[in-house]
Design a protein around this nucleic acid. Structure first.
Length: 518
RNA sequence: UCCUCCAUAGCUCAAUGGUAGAGCGACCGGCUGUUAACCGGUAGGUUCUAGGUUCGAGUCCUAGUGGAGGAGCCA
């Protein structure tokens, strides 16, 4: 079983012509190095003719390296003694062992050492990142500088580690990374509100023209627009998208799933890993308007294997962070979520609990009946589980990640495979959600409906337009195969692994309602 | 979008309707192989915006803007 990497964390050696801090911390005493980075703190001492202790970080690992700048350096009084948090410097020096046994860089004129200032901080009093505790809410307002803090540096490294671990996981298993489109002109995705992509001139007063009859004013504006060169033609109450860039309505993608299914039906095992956009006005610690999603899709695959892969992938990711980012993980465990490491070890060591939706309802009903738990919302077969229900299952009842399967068809998407042998009125589909403590739903997936007549039936039932899905339906007409896949919210995975509370703090520049600065 | 709460120094927060304060940070000095350093001092304010009530508003009222927590939507 994987254990936490012991300090210093393993980091790939840099190819830079200077020494990265992660490498300097492990270098043998006596090694001559040049390090570059940003000052986190400076402390001075008058001992031994004066010296300054500078904590330097360069992002290569969690720890800073301490530079001991001796008073005999030519620029000591004029520059080194004036260094403050945020200044960028480079330092030539020698690796020595400090009284506490750690590596540090000694830089004195006698040994040919030097500290050169690369960039000063304008006004130290106004520098937004002071050497003190800051709230995450405040740091969100200075997102261009927050990555210089302990926490956001650690999040950035863990995010990278997880991204690479995911690619490795699929690559090692013969999956092909497919770049599904960001812009989609099919209006059939149906996974939520979409952002419009258009080159039409929005400054035209379309809003004034809406209504039931065409007013004199509307007629006038239309005539004006028609007369102006470059103005797109339009019909009353409706935009004429045939004159738009793509000749039809276009949006930012809400999922690459439908596209990636086409590749699964040729390459067998594929996945997407890219940005996803939802224009929902949701204001929570678990939603973003722009986020990254991983969507594997496997041909000749059923729901059970789908769940196997999802569980293996999550465990692989946790393991990778244990092995590669022990330094950052220890910080999260101490300062962000006490007990994080034990929680993750527990997840790593236990098989995920697998139950059907129907069994989940029975557990919830029993909890209510026995008085063990009170819910705000009623538990009833056929309705979607509320947050509180999901949290009870994963946090209180099982205290483990839970894979819920076989949901009632009416609460799931049209493309999910209809289960066979269901009692009338109790039809279910081969859907699967993975719930984890603290986050709730982290993965949603399903076996897809590969039978054309059943798929058509579902499209009709849900009042969708069959023609809009012509190429999706083609997959069922030309060599159809059972296939399955799932979607993993990348930022939710990062929350789960780091113990961070707010999804806006695990993506570099969060986009959410009323939030697109930077 | 709904419910609840919040907005005061660079940051985190105090201040009964009656002279706007502390801690941290910054700056200056002292001490020190220091490392969440420590000790002393200094500077720092249009109390989110726009109205209103009042002799008087940081405090009460209305609207707006932004933020937090919860819910819905979902990943």
């Amino acid at each position: 079983m994987s254990t936490l990497a012991s300090p210093p964390a393993a980091a790939p050696s840099s190819t830079a012509p200077w020494t990265r801090v992660s490498d300097a911390l492990r270098a043998a005493p006596g090694t001559k190095v040049t390090v570059k980075g940003w000052v986190r703190t400076r402390r001075d001492s008058k001992a031994e003719g004066g010296m300054s202790f500078i904590a330097l970080h360069d992002g290569s690992c969690f720890d800073t390296i301490q530079i001991v700048a001796k008073g005999d350096l030519g620029n000591y009084a004029a520059e080194i003694a004036r260094l403050c948090t945020g200044c960028s410097i480079e330092c030539d020096g020698t690796i020595v062992t400090n009284p506490k046994g750690g590596a540090e860089v000694a830089a004195g004129a006698a040994d040919g050492g030097a500290v050169r200032v690369i960039g000063w901080v304008d006004d130290p009093d106004k520098y937004p990142i002071q050497p003190k505790a800051h709230s995450f809410e405040y740091l969100r307002e200075v997102a261009h500088l927050r990555v210089r803090t302990n926490t956001f540096g650690a999040v950035a490294r863990v995010r990278h580690c997880l991204a690479m671990a995911i690619h490795r996981f699929f690559d090692e298993r013969g999956f092909c990374w497919v770049h599904t489109p960001i812009i989609t002109a099919s209006d059939c995705e149906g996974a939520g509100q979409m952002f419009r992509v258009s080159t039409l001139d929005l400054l035209r007063p379309l809003a004034r023209l809406q209504g039931t009859g065409e007013s004199e004013e509307a007629k006038k504006v239309r005539a004006e627009c028609a007369a102006k060169p470059g103005m797109p033609p339009w019909t009353y109450g409706q935009v004429d998208f045939s004159s738009d860039f793509f000749g039809k309505e276009a949006h930012l993608t809400v999922s690459g799933q439908l596209n990636v299914e086409t590749y699964a039906c040729a390459l067998s095992n594929v996945y997407t890993f890219g940005p996803t956009f939802r224009a929902e006005n949701s204001n929570t610690a678990r939603h973003l308007a722009e986020f990254w999603m991983i969507e594997p899709e496997m041909a000749f695959c059923d729901l059970a294997w789908d769940a196997d892969i999802a569980e293996a992938m999550l465990k692989h990711c946790i393991k990778a962070v244990f092995e590669e980012r022990g330094d950052d993980l220890r910080f999260f465990d101490e300062r962000i979520e006490k007990g994080l490491i034990d929680r993750l070890k527990h997840v790593l060591e236990s098989p995920f609990k697998r139950i059907t939706y129907t069994q989940a309802i029975e557990i919830l009903e029993e909890a209510v009946r026995s008085g063990k738990k009170k819910f705000e919302f009623p538990v009833k077969w056929g309705t979607d589980l509320q947050s509180e229900h999901e949290r009870y299952l994963t946090e209180e009842h099982f205290m483990l990640p839970v894979i819920l399967t076989n949901y009632p068809k009416q609460i799931k998407a049209f493309y999910m495979r209809l289960d066979e042998g269901c009692a009338p009125g109790r039809e279910t589909v081969s859907a699967m959600d993975i719930l984890v403590p603290k986050i709730g739903e982290i993965i949603g997936g399903s076996q897809r409906e590969e039978r054309l007549e059943k798929l058509d039936q579902r499209i009709d039932e849900m009042g969708l337009d069959k023609n809009a899905y012509w190429w999706y339906r083609d997959l069922r007409r030309y060599g159809t195969v059972p296939h399955a896949g799932f979607g993993l919210g990348f930022e939710r995975l990062i929350l789960f692994v780091t113990g961070m509370q707010n999804i806006r703090d695990v993506i570099p520049f969060p986009r959410a309602p009323k939030q697109a600065e930077f």
